[in-house]
Amino acid sequence: MHLTLKIWRQSSPEDAGQLVTYEMPDVSEHMSFLEMLDVLNERLTEQGEDPVSFDHDCREGICGMCGLMINGSAHGPRAATTTCQLHMREFEDGETILIEPWRAEAFPVVKDLVVDRSSFDRIIQVGGYVSVNTGSAPDANALPIGKEVANRAMDAAACIGCGACVAQCPNGAAQLFTSAKIAHLALLPQGQPERQRRTQRMVEQMEQEAFGSCSNFRECEAVCPKEIDVGFIAMMNREYLRAKLS
């Protein structure tokens, strides 16, 4: 099929950036979205032009490295699918596709479609863990955990840290990401001793970064490739209140 791509090109963080149009006359429906960009880049390289930079690694939807705004939607049109797992059969012959980097103040552009998501790492660093040194753990079965609780914790822990939630949010808020880790650990008995300190520190770090505030648009949940639900945000808000009041 024939596609027209309008891609955001920005040579450096200082560059103003612009949309550039590329014609793709021979796209196969079986290509992944990133394979289509690979084909474009091969062509640009052969023509002596600068290929389009984009982040990607596992191409199996689990590392969280890839992420593009495709026609205004984080990771594109298909629900529960990362950009790398999106295939061209989701698009129509003759279509024009707008491709942009994650749009959020907290994720500054590095180059073209590549952004800096180190703000996510900083949120985890202040408390997104159980403080247990190697070698000090009791036997794994000494602590029974109900199947439903373990499953719910796993729902939250499935977050891949891609940043789609922030990119889609009109406020650029990071509540879904932060709450997923707070909920994962608050649900489990292992997370109890540090429950309040963790919540407080992670929420405050989130607020220090350039993220916006949550006003319940729920766009984050709609685009999350791992279908993490906003129930965890409600839980985080309760956890935070509890931590502040005690």
Binding site: V130, A140, N141
Partner: peptide, 22 residues
């Protein structure tokens, strides 16, 4: 055997039986 102990203590949500064991 120690790896499983360590991972569980960190909060790794391994699959469990209804009785709560791994």
């Amino acid at each position: 055997v120690e790896i499983i102990d360590q991972a569980v203590a960190q909060g790794v949500p391994f699959a469990r039986e209804y009785g709560g064991l791994l």
